[in-house]
Design a protein around this nucleic acid. Structure first.
Length: 438
DNA sequence: TCTGGGGTCCTAGGACCC
DNA sequence: TCTGGGGTCCTAGGACCC
């Protein structure tokens, strides 16, 4: 084969992602942040979820608890921002749609808020796909101001890896095409890159791999997938094969139906009282129920979990969950909230400071022609309920008693009309009145 | 005291991802 | 004092049945 000939791979998968996504979004709206160390914090300003290059250079770690780094950050003039997910979501939509212009619908998988896979296999015949990727990168930057890097490989895992190299080698100008790189360079990089950089290899697996002498990505590629499967799992075996260039993971171009709906929060303060937890779980149930409706699905299993703060090793620890399986599919709020309370009662114990709780709806299926429950809120009520819940979060994102109490009262106000048995003395029956309160 | 074997379903929990 | 949230997939082990 002549070296001028184009390299046509069996598959060419690209991974495009936004660099430091949340920080980059903030910078689009506030260019003064450019060139400065910036971090974006999670809910409750708990920990760092996005860092600018300047913040990374200061040694600020991803998911680091903010209270521990605050002093260091202040000293170096780090700008800390609370997260604004609706802005990030909107930017994400535009990002995905710009990339969508370069491929067909069946060639794009939206993988997360800031990443997507593109199948460029068919375009290899037509263009130099490295240049094609460069056009994507420039267009995203020109149109919406977000910086991106692109990795190209024979499989999704290879594309992820190439993307990592695109980020860590500035001379590549944001694009790393694994398919056209020289073997000597590839081998050198694989030898000196630790195995933990591989997609699917986390902390625990890194330890276990090192224990059997696998340190670099080159070591992992040289391993036998069947033996890896025995020692680890089918998942890790797939990772090895994908690194070797054998595709095991399909592009998922139509988002699969959700398998579970989860709503959970860490409390601002610790909580040990069953009544308070009951109120919180009821609010969580209604949030999860809203998502269930938006998904146009029904569920059969309601799971509730509560846990203490694992970080406080000096405190007694408890982490429990309980599932209730209903005999019929439901998307009825009252039924779900009721099951959630029963589940909570099963796992609750006195004498513990709980710090986090959640509800998970599983056994999901598409909603068919199901009879409407008498308890179903009308669509308008649903909208009102959503408005109320947003107001609630705004009023007290840390789940203070007062705000949660009102939220629960709202639900009980609805139930009241049906069963004449409100359990809260301060319930309100009028939605408009509720909304006025906030 | 002795105490099978295989299949299935469910629950709990671990590991990973962004 | 203060350590995110929302997902997926896999596995071990118990309950139950024949």
């Amino acid at each position: 084969m002549n070296s001028q000939e184009k390299i046509i791979a069996a598959k060419a998968i690209a991974l495009v992602d936004v660099n430091n996504c949340y920080v980059s979004c903030e910078r689009v709206f506030n260019p003064k942040l450019n060139g400065k160390p910036v971090v974006v914090l999670s809910n409750n300003d708990g920990c760092v979820v996005s860092r600018s290059a300047e913040a990374k250079a200061l040694g600020i770690k991803m998911a680091g608890p903010w209270y521990q780094i605050k002093d260091l950050a202040k000293k170096h003039g780090v700008i800390a921002l609370s997260s604004n997910y609706s802005i990030y979501g909107e930017m994400s939509n535009r990002f995905m749609s710009i990339l969508g212009d370069f491929v067909t619908r069946a060639e794009q998988e939206i993988y997360s808020i800031d990443e997507c896979f593109l199948d460029l296999t068919a375009y290899q015949q037509l263009f130099d796909i490295t240049e094609y990727a460069q056009q994507m990168r420039q267009r995203v930057n020109q149109w919406i101001g977000l910086p991106v890097c692109i990795g190209i490989g024979a499989t999704k895992t290879q594309a992820k890896l190439a993307n990592h190299f695109a980020k860590t080698h500035p001379d590549l100008d944001g694009i790393c095409n694994w398919l056209t790189m020289e073997d000597a360079v590839k081998n050198e990089w694989l030898l000196k890159t630790p195995v933990r950089e591989v997609w699917g290899v986390g902390r625990q697996n890194t330890k276990s791999l090192e224990a059997i002498g696998i340190y670099s990505i080159a070591d992992l590629i040289a391993s036998n997938p069947m033996q890896i499967k025995k020692r680890f799992s089918i998942v890790m075996a797939r990772t090895v094969m994908e690194l070797q260039g054998i595709p095991c993971l399909e592009l998922e171009t139509a988002p699969p139906a959700k398998q579970q709906i989860l709503y959970s929060r860490t409390f601002g303060q610790r909580m040990s009282d069953i009544d308070a937890l009951n109120e919180i779980i009821t609010v969580f149930a209604s949030r999860a129920h809203l998502k269930l409706r938006q998904e146009k699905a029904v569920c059969t299993v309601i799971t509730v979990f509560i846990m203490t703060n694992r970080m406080r090793e000096q405190d007694p620890q408890l982490s429990k969950s309980h599932s209730i399986t209903l005999s019929v599919d439901t998307d009825d709020l009252i039924q779900i909230a009721h099951a959630a309370r029963i589940a909570l009662a099963k796992i609750y114990k006195t004498g513990y400071d709980f710090q986090k709780a959640g509800i998970i709806l599983t056994g999901l299926s598409a909603k068919g022609r199901q009879a409407q429950s008498l308890f179903d809120p009308e669509p308008t009520d649903l909208a009102k309920q959503e408005a109320l819940m947003h107001a609630l979060e705004k009023v007290n994102s840390r789940f203070g008693r007062k705000a949660v109490g009102i939220g629960v009262s709202a639900m009980q106000g609805q139930a009241w009309e049906m069963n004449q048995k409100a359990r809260s003395p301060n319930y309100l029956t009028d939605w408009n009145e509720l909304l006025r309160v906030h």
